[in-house]
Design a protein around this nucleic acid. Structure first.
Length: 202
DNA sequence: TAGGCCATCTGGTCCT
DNA sequence: AGGACCAGATGGCCTA
């Protein structure tokens, strides 16, 4: 287990960024355009507005009722495929979001009131992997400052503060930003689980 | 009110 | 032909 000493973050992690408030799932809303398309078959117009087709010599040929039914069936099929494709796409995105939620659980940033955005989750995960690989590669114990620094590279100040909070580096209010050890804890990185943990110092 | 983030729809492209 | 993947467009929600 590598011991990490408590240090503070630089004042560059000032907040004036968008908040990390939890994002409520957006209810699937009715799509008037889609309804319209489903009811009227917007795409039909191209096919059906021509009651007749142009034959040789420019004269109009009447389309037989059977052909019209065929066309309608084809359009119904197209619409159905579109609806099914939308459902698949929704499921695909839900799967992606589920994977992102799993990722949120293993990156060192936990908050009950807010949720990391997708982009911040990916950035933090990348930094976390990088930080851990550096530790494994060098076998050196990093101090918490450089560790948190690496984790927060490219992250927004609010997310950086969340990470700092998660690692029990408490943020002191006021300007400039001062981070200080909040309690008597030592931090360790479990080389088996690659997770950062804390240990009370007696 | 602007900006960030999100879910969803959609059409295009690639692959099987 | 049909599914997966992708990126652009759109509109809603929320916060500073």
């Amino acid at each position: 287990m590598l011991q990490v000493d408590m240090l503070s973050l630089p004042s560059s992690f000032r907040t004036s960024w968008t908040s990390n408030q939890p994002v409520k799932p957006v209810k699937p809303e009715p799509r008037p355009d889609l309804d319209y398309m489903l009811k009227t078959g917007r795409e039909d117009e191209r096919d059906e507005e021509e009651e007749g087709e142009e034959g040789e010599g420019g004269c109009l040929r009447r389309r037989s009722p059977g052909k019209k039914n065929q066309s309608q069936a084809r359009l119904d099929r197209v619409r159905l495929r579109r609806i099914e494709a939308n459902a698949r796409e929704r499921n695909r995105m839900h799967g992606l979001n589920k994977a992102l939620d799993s990722l949120r659980k293993v990156v060192p940033c936990c908050s009950k009131t807010s949720k990391l955005s997708k982009i911040e989750t990916l950035r933090l995960a990348k930094n976390y992997i990088w930080a851990l690989s550096q530790i494994l590669h060098s076998g050196q114990t990093p101090d918490l400052l450089s560790f948190v620094h690496t984790l927060c590279k490219g992250l927004s100040p609010p997310t950086s503060n969340l990470v700092a909070t998660c690692l029990q580096v408490h943020v002191h209010g006021g300007d400039p930003l001062v981070l200080y050890p909040a309690n008597q804890h030592k931090y360790h990185i479990n080389l088996h689980t690659h997770r950062v943990g804390k240990q009370h110092v007696h």
